[in-house]
Amino acid sequence: MNRLSDEKALELLRGAMTARSVDGPPDDLWPRVRHRIGRAANRPPLGDWVLAAALVVLCLLRPSLVGILLLHF
Protein backbone atom coordinates (compact mmCIF):
# COMPACT_ATOMS: atom_id res chain seq x y z
CA MET A 1 0.00 0.00 0.00
CA ASN A 2 1.28 3.48 -0.83
CA ARG A 3 2.04 5.59 2.20
CA LEU A 4 0.43 9.01 2.64
CA SER A 5 2.71 11.97 2.04
CA ASP A 6 3.17 14.49 4.88
CA GLU A 7 1.29 17.09 2.83
CA LYS A 8 -1.69 14.78 2.23
CA ALA A 9 -1.76 13.78 5.91
CA LEU A 10 -1.85 17.45 6.94
CA GLU A 11 -4.53 18.21 4.39
CA LEU A 12 -6.69 15.39 5.78
CA LEU A 13 -6.07 16.53 9.33
CA ARG A 14 -6.94 20.17 8.64
CA GLY A 15 -10.02 19.16 6.66
CA ALA A 16 -11.40 17.06 9.50
CA MET A 17 -10.24 18.97 12.57
CA THR A 18 -11.19 22.61 12.33
CA ALA A 19 -9.68 24.93 14.92
CA ARG A 20 -11.95 25.51 17.90
CA SER A 21 -12.94 29.04 18.78
CA VAL A 22 -15.07 29.79 21.82
CA ASP A 23 -16.40 32.93 23.49
CA GLY A 24 -16.00 32.03 27.13
CA PRO A 25 -17.51 29.89 29.87
CA PRO A 26 -21.31 29.95 30.04
CA ASP A 27 -21.28 30.33 33.85
CA ASP A 28 -19.51 32.69 36.23
CA LEU A 29 -16.65 30.54 37.52
CA TRP A 30 -15.37 33.00 40.14
CA PRO A 31 -17.51 31.57 43.01
CA ARG A 32 -16.00 28.13 42.32
CA VAL A 33 -12.44 29.51 42.26
CA ARG A 34 -13.15 31.42 45.50
CA HIS A 35 -14.58 28.27 47.10
CA ARG A 36 -11.51 26.27 46.09
CA ILE A 37 -9.19 28.87 47.66
CA GLY A 38 -11.29 28.94 50.84
CA ARG A 39 -11.28 25.15 51.10
CA ALA A 40 -7.49 25.03 50.80
CA ALA A 41 -7.04 27.83 53.35
CA ASN A 42 -9.09 25.90 55.94
CA ARG A 43 -7.10 22.72 55.46
CA PRO A 44 -4.25 22.20 57.97
CA PRO A 45 -0.84 22.50 56.32
CA LEU A 46 0.97 19.29 55.29
CA GLY A 47 3.62 19.94 57.96
CA ASP A 48 0.97 19.61 60.70
CA TRP A 49 -0.11 16.23 59.37
CA VAL A 50 3.51 15.03 59.25
CA LEU A 51 4.08 16.18 62.85
CA ALA A 52 0.91 14.45 64.03
CA ALA A 53 1.90 11.22 62.27
CA ALA A 54 5.39 11.40 63.81
CA LEU A 55 3.90 11.82 67.29
CA VAL A 56 1.61 8.82 66.82
CA VAL A 57 4.53 6.65 65.69
CA LEU A 58 6.63 7.88 68.61
CA CYS A 59 3.86 7.05 71.08
CA LEU A 60 3.52 3.57 69.62
CA LEU A 61 7.26 2.96 69.96
CA ARG A 62 7.60 4.57 73.42
CA PRO A 63 4.22 4.38 75.24
CA SER A 64 5.77 6.15 78.25
CA LEU A 65 5.82 9.35 76.16
CA VAL A 66 2.01 9.47 76.10
CA GLY A 67 1.92 10.78 79.67
CA ILE A 68 4.48 13.49 78.90
CA LEU A 69 2.59 14.56 75.78
CA LEU A 70 -0.72 14.69 77.68
CA LEU A 71 0.83 17.23 80.08
CA HIS A 72 1.07 19.63 77.14
CA PHE A 73 -2.66 19.44 76.28
Binding site: V22, D23, G24, P25, L29, W30, R32, R36
Partner: peptide, 24 residues
Protein backbone atom coordinates in the same frame (compact mmCIF):
# COMPACT_ATOMS: atom_id res chain seq x y z
CA UNK B 1 -8.31 36.66 31.78
CA UNK B 2 -10.81 33.85 32.44
CA UNK B 3 -12.34 33.93 28.94
CA UNK B 4 -8.91 33.66 27.36
CA UNK B 5 -7.92 30.77 29.64
CA UNK B 6 -11.23 28.97 29.03
CA UNK B 7 -10.88 29.35 25.25
CA UNK B 8 -7.29 28.15 25.37
CA UNK B 9 -8.24 25.05 27.35
CA UNK B 10 -11.06 24.20 24.91
CA UNK B 11 -8.66 24.59 21.98
CA UNK B 12 -6.06 22.28 23.48
CA UNK B 13 -8.38 19.61 24.86
CA UNK B 14 -11.29 19.83 22.35
CA UNK B 15 -13.44 19.01 25.37
CA UNK B 16 -15.83 21.85 26.29
CA UNK B 17 -17.46 19.63 28.93
CA UNK B 18 -14.21 19.56 30.92
CA UNK B 19 -13.19 23.16 30.22
CA UNK B 20 -15.08 24.75 33.13
CA UNK B 21 -13.50 22.43 35.72
CA UNK B 22 -10.11 22.91 34.09
CA UNK B 23 -10.45 26.70 34.12
CA UNK B 24 -11.20 26.59 37.86
Amino acid sequence: FHREVYGWVVRLTRDPSAAEDLTV
